[in-house]
């Protein structure tokens, strides 16, 4: 990740799912080192927006421009997406899971240990994911963020199933990511207490 200034600008974005207009006319811009916290009622389109940013959902209308990263790659290929599903295989061990994503997403085969350390999973490295509790599974899913350096983090309710200590750990990791010039878009109900966080409320106008 370079320190060079990142910027993401979204103009007039619309999202349509199953014939229903989830939101439209959404605009915001974000720079490196900044976090955007999405709030809004259920169904306001927080998850949809994150999936659109990750390239997992088609954009019905509008423009997303990401600058300052690798011009060869799309936004999705430079972003981490942590959704509701943990994307774990029960028969793969903690270490194997992180190593796989490291090789697959980042082509870096060695050095998964630091990611496990960062999420407090080092002592479980040889355990198959089937044995993990919900909170441990979530932490293993989050370990991707550290294992593969990518400038943009897209987090959909990342604190679900996490206890207070783990939330604090996650917030520390997020703060350090911002400090290195990265950017974060997160949907969360919990006030994470991030210093540079800006708020975007979805769904307010859609209620009319």
């Amino acid at each position: 990740m370079t320190i060079s200034e990142l910027s993401l600008s979204v103009r007039d974005l619309a999202c349509e799912r199953g014939g229903r207009l989830v939101f439209e006319g959404l605009s915001f811009s974000l720079r490196g080192g900044e976090a955007l916290v999405l709030t809004g009622s259920n169904g306001a389109g927080k998850s949809s927006l994150l999936r659109q940013l990750a390239g997992l959902l088609d954009v019905a209308q509008g423009v997303m421009a990401f600058e300052g990263g690798d011009p060869e790659l799309s936004l999705g290929e430079q972003a981490h997406y942590v959704g509701h599903l943990d994307a774990l295989k029960p028969s793969m061990t903690v270490m194997e899971t992180v190593s796989f994503w490291r090789t697959y997403l980042g082509s870096i085969p060695e050095g998964a240990d630091t990611a496990l350390e960062a999420l407090g999973l080092a002592h479980l490295a040889d355990l198959p994911a089937a044995y993990l509790s919900a909170g441990q599974r979530r932490r293993l899913s989050l370990a991707r963020l550290i294992a593969v350096p990518r400038p943009v983090w897209l987090l959909d309710e990342p604190t679900v199933a996490l206890d207070a200590a783990s939330v604090a750990r996650l917030v520390a990791l997020m703060t350090s990511h911002l400090g290195q010039g990265g950017m974060i878009v997160a949907a969360t109900h919990l006030d994470l207490g991030l210093a540079e966080a800006r708020q975007l409320r979805l769904g307010a106008e859609a209620l009319t």
Binding site: G120, H123, L124, L127, P128, Y131, L132, S133, Q136, D163
Partner: peptide, 12 residues
């Protein structure tokens, strides 16, 4: 033992 390992020493 593994279940205990995952459960007992979870939050170090």
């Amino acid at each position: 033992l593994r279940l205990a390992q995952a459960g007992g020493a979870g939050e170090v």
